Simulated scan of single mutants.
Amino acid sequence: MRVEIWSDIACPWCYIGKARFEQGLAAFAHRDDVEVVHRSFELDPGRTRHDTAPVVEMLAKKYGRTLDEARAMEEHVASTARSEGLTYRTEGRDHGNTFDIHRLLHLARARGRQDQLLDLAYRANFAEERSVFDPEVLVTLAVEAGLDEQEVRDVLADGTAYADAVRADEREAAELGATGVPFFVLDRRYGVSGGQPAEVFTKALEQAWQGRVITPIGTDAAACYADGACEVPQATA
């Protein structure tokens, strides 16, 4: 069985959703027979390659909030991430165009190292003080994932390398009706949208394996959307 996951490295719910999916997959009896493929979805495709900004400032501007309110928004997402055992920094992170990252993820898939690079990129973006929008950081991450340094540099230098693959993924997401990420497609018959709880993923895998005619499972879950906006949990009193 194949599971395809559309995501963007800039999306916190993709970071959280990947961890939850992996927990759900670990509880699935046929997990060794599941192929996972990561596909491209840019949250901010209109942003130029070198246009980066601090995440907190970007959130304040996008949602019309003060910087303190934006920091509180980040802290709520961080709390959710930490509940899944993930490290999440609320300060010092950048936001920018992720096209080059997606191109490298396609190279990594061709070399059998896609999941390794994705994990390293998520960790760098959300847990460490390394900007994934710095080409030299991308080279370092790719080499850590097991890719050849010169091949990585050649891909980054050639803006057309794997560009068609990224665009094809994005067209396919639109054809499938995906307006936000993470978006999970199981055997091209069933979709799960958002960072659902692990048990929802396990149930979806079980139903897809059984070959049943199935309907969407689970309530709406937090996600990031094609206009670059990400849902933000509301503070409790």
Results as ranks from 00 to 15, higher is better:
V152P: 01
L186W: 00
D148G: 08
C230D: 12
V192C: 00
C14P: 03
V56I: 15
A78H: 10
G194D: 00
Y122I: 08
V139Q: 07
E175D: 10
L59T: 05
Q116F: 12
S40I: 00
R39V: 03
R188I: 06
A26M: 01
L176C: 04
V56P: 10
L25T: 01
A142D: 03
E151L: 13
D134G: 06
P233Y: 06
T90W: 14
G112E: 13
N125D: 01
E144K: 08
A174C: 07
Y225V: 01
A127D: 12
T202Q: 09
L118N: 15
V132D: 11
E42M: 13
T202I: 05
V34R: 00
A226F: 10
H106L: 03
G180K: 07
S79D: 14
L104S: 10
G112H: 11
V143Q: 09
A108N: 07
Y15V: 00
D187F: 00
A163C: 01
K62N: 13
D115K: 14
Y63W: 10
D169I: 01
T202W: 06
G218E: 07
E74M: 12
T140E: 15
S193W: 07
V132R: 13
A53L: 14
R113E: 12
T215G: 14
E136P: 02
E35Q: 12
G64C: 04
T48R: 14
I5Y: 02
A53R: 13
E22K: 05
E128P: 11
L141T: 09
A26L: 04
H50G: 10
E175S: 11
Q207E: 15
V132T: 15
D227R: 02
H38Y: 15
A60I: 04
E57R: 14
E69H: 05
V152L: 07
L67E: 12
N97G: 09
C224I: 02
Q196G: 12
R171S: 12
Q114A: 04
G180P: 10
K61I: 05
L147Y: 00
A72T: 12
G46C: 09
E199I: 14
S83M: 10
V152M: 08
E22C: 02
E136Q: 05
F28P: 00
R167V: 07
D158V: 06
E91W: 05
A178E: 04
D119T: 15
R49H: 10
